[in-house]
């Protein structure tokens, strides 16, 4: 017998109008292409190689590419992860203190995203210490925002 309890009845109802993945994308999101984003990625990279970590993190956490496709987001993430990983432990809390609450919210998105990909897991320790310092500074606010925000990085 067919397992009728598991039948997706909404799929048979054209009027159901149920939520699709597209419905969850926030409205009025600006589309960003890799070409448009490339200069910013370069800038983050050059700042972090020259050791200007504060500027690199501040640039990375302002106006992130929410409206980009997955591969573009991955490239941007890569640059952010490099910057995060090259920061010395002792500097972390100092940098976090200089970020705005909005930048905290963006930073925690990259921390979580970093922990979810192999490249980030290799430097999991440093991501965790970023996370620790961030929650010491800003409390659970960024975490709550992260959980409920549909703009993903």
């Amino acid at each position: 017998m067919e397992d009728w309890r598991r039948i997706d009845i909404d799929a048979f109802d054209p009027e159901s109008g149920r939520l699709t993945a597209a419905d969850l994308i926030p409205p009025n999101q600006a589309q960003v292409t890799l070409q448009e984003l490339q200069p910013k990625i370069q800038q983050i990279r050059s700042m972090s190689t020259s050791g200007d970590m504060i500027s690199a993190i501040q640039l990375a956490t302002s106006d992130p590419p929410y409206g980009a496709d997955d591969s573009t987001k991955a490239q941007y993430l890569q640059a952010v992860l490099e910057a995060l990983g090259q920061t010395r432990q002792a500097d972390i809390s100092n940098i976090i203190k200089q970020l705005s609450p909005k930048q905290h919210d963006v930073l925690i998105k990259y921390l979580y995203k970093g922990m979810s990909v192999p490249e980030g897991q290799k430097q999991g320790g440093i991501l965790l210490s970023w996370f620790e310092k961030l929650t010491q500074e800003a409390g659970v606010n960024p975490v709550v925002h992260y959980l409920s925000d549909r703009r993903t990085v």
């Binding site: 609450p101 659970v140 709550v144 959980l147 409920s148």
Partner: peptide
């Protein structure tokens, strides 16, 4: 109030003010 821990006040003119919960919880 919303689950991101914010209190919002809006009016007919389109003004939108937001303030975050100091403790973070919604």
């Amino acid at each position: 109030v919303a689950h991101d821990g914010s209190l919002n006040v809006v009016d007919s003119q389109g003004n939108h003010q937001t303030v975050d919960a100091p403790e973070g919880l919604p």
